[in-house]
């Protein structure tokens, strides 16, 4: 292991985040506030409670997950795609670092950014609604696992993408719909039985359900299933990263 090199990559990736700090900080604050105005105050005031939780509070875990997933993916995919695009990847390839160190540096920075944004949204939410976190340790564990998994997933997308269009393709066409249909803003129990069954094929359901359980103690699926799901996703991402490392796929000619 080459800790100096990992630190150099991590610091350099974080520097990009801090260069646009206000944007990185303000955009989640503003978008979260908007969700609360629309869903919490305007529409939410007409919805009683969901699973015994006020609607405003109910959507908080979903909102955080939505941002953490999309931010984890976009930061990591852009982070590794940008050197490919500008050509500066030559430096990574000629440096005495292994691919695993590159992953730790780049995906680690992306996960940190996602975590930061998740924390910002949580803090912003606390301004609008009463928040209770029944299982704070599980909450932190879920948040961390999600940040890391989706940063790894984003890293894989960044390696795979050959242009900016492909970079946006999976987040836009796959991840966002899955998150919206994964119970971010509603409970699965509110759906008709057929859709409930179909929804169970959406992996995001398990993440949001588990995360919500850590807040309110209510869940659509058992918490252990949720933990297994995120663990499985993380394992798949790690296997993909390992395979890329072995074959040099789309990196080293």
């Amino acid at each position: 292991m080459n800790p100096t090199a990992i630190k150099a990559m991590y610091v350099s990736e974080m520097a990009r985040f801090f260069r646009t700090f206000m944007q990185s900080f303000l955009s989640p604050v503003i978008s979260t506030s908007l969700y609360f105005v629309v869903f919490g105050a305007a529409i939410g005031s007409r919805i009683d409670e969901v699973e015994g939780v006020s609607y405003g509070s109910f959507i908080v875990p979903g909102l955080i997950m939505l941002s953490v997933m999309t931010q984890g993916i976009s930061n990591a995919s852009f982070g590794i795609y940008f050197p490919k695009f500008t050509g500066t990847i030559y430096e990574l390839l000629s440096a005495p670092v292994s691919f695993i160190e590159v992953v730790i540096g780049f995906a680690g920075a992306a996960a940190t950014k996602a975590l930061f944004i998740g924390a910002v949204i949580l803090a912003t939410s606390a301004l609008f609604v009463d928040l209770q976190i029944q299982h704070p340790l599980v909450m932190v564990l879920f948040l961390l696992l999600t940040c890391i998994s989706f940063a790894l997933f984003g890293f894989i997308i960044g390696i795979w993408a050959k242009n900016f269009e492909q970079l946006q393709l999976i987040p836009l066409l796959v991840v966002t719909p899955l998150v919206f249909l994964g119970g971010s803003f509603y409970s699965i129990n509110m759906l008709p039985p057929v859709w409930q069954a179909i929804t169970m094929f959406n992996p995001v359901v398990y993440l949001i359900s588990g995360f919500r359980w850590s807040f309110f103690g209510v869940a659509d699926v058992p918490i252990i299933t949720s933990l297994l799901a995120i663990g499985l996703f993380q394992a798949l991402c790690l296997i993909a990263v390992w395979w890329i490392f072995k074959t040099g796929w789309r990196i080293r000619k």
Binding site: N2, A5, A8, M9, V11, S12, E91, A95, P96
Partner: peptide, 17 residues
């Protein structure tokens, strides 16, 4: 393009451990 000269040179040194 957006990095500063000193930072990018420092980065290279760090990358090489």
């Amino acid at each position: 393009p957006f990095s500063r000269v000193m930072d990018t040179v420092r980065y290279s040194r760090g990358l090489f451990g």
